[in-house]
Measured scan of single mutants.
Amino acid sequence: GTLHLNGVTVKVPSLEKAIKAAKKFAKKYNLEVQVHGNTVHVH
């Protein structure tokens, strides 16, 4: 999967790991997580 954090793109081995990391990051910075196919966006 691919993880987008505020314009930074990170390749992640699995989508589940990407979503987990995204949710952790989003919670910390009070951001929103959106999943588009195998790409996770945090903004």
Rank of each mutant, 00 (worst) to 15 (best):
N6M: 15
K20Q: 12
I19C: 12
P13G: 12
L3H: 03
K28L: 10
L3P: 03
V33R: 00
N30W: 11
K23D: 02
A18C: 14
K20S: 08
A18R: 01
V10N: 03
V8Q: 06
G37N: 06
G7A: 05
A18D: 00
G37K: 05
V12D: 01
L5I: 15
L3K: 02
K27D: 08
N38F: 12
Y29Q: 02
L15H: 01
K24Q: 09
K11Y: 14
G37R: 04
H36G: 03
G37W: 07
L31Q: 04
K17A: 14
A21T: 06
P13C: 14
H43L: 13
K24N: 06
K17T: 09
G1H: 11
L31P: 00
H4Y: 12
G7Q: 05
A18G: 03
G37L: 06
G37T: 03
K28W: 10
V35R: 01
Y29F: 09
T2N: 06
A26S: 02
G7H: 11
V10H: 09
V10E: 04
A26R: 01
Y29L: 05
I19F: 03
N38G: 05
V35I: 13
K24L: 08
T39F: 10
H36C: 04
T9S: 10
V35A: 04
G37A: 05
K27L: 07
V12W: 13
H4V: 15
H43C: 14
V42D: 00
V35S: 01
E16C: 14
Q34C: 14
L15I: 11
L31A: 05
A22G: 03
V42S: 02
L3T: 03
H41R: 10
H4F: 10
S14R: 06
K27N: 06
V8A: 06
K24F: 10
T2H: 11
A26D: 01
G7T: 09
L3N: 02
A22N: 00
V33H: 00
E16D: 12
T2R: 07
K23Y: 10
G1E: 10
T2L: 14
K17H: 11
T2W: 15
L31N: 02
V42M: 11
L31C: 09
T9Q: 09
K28T: 02
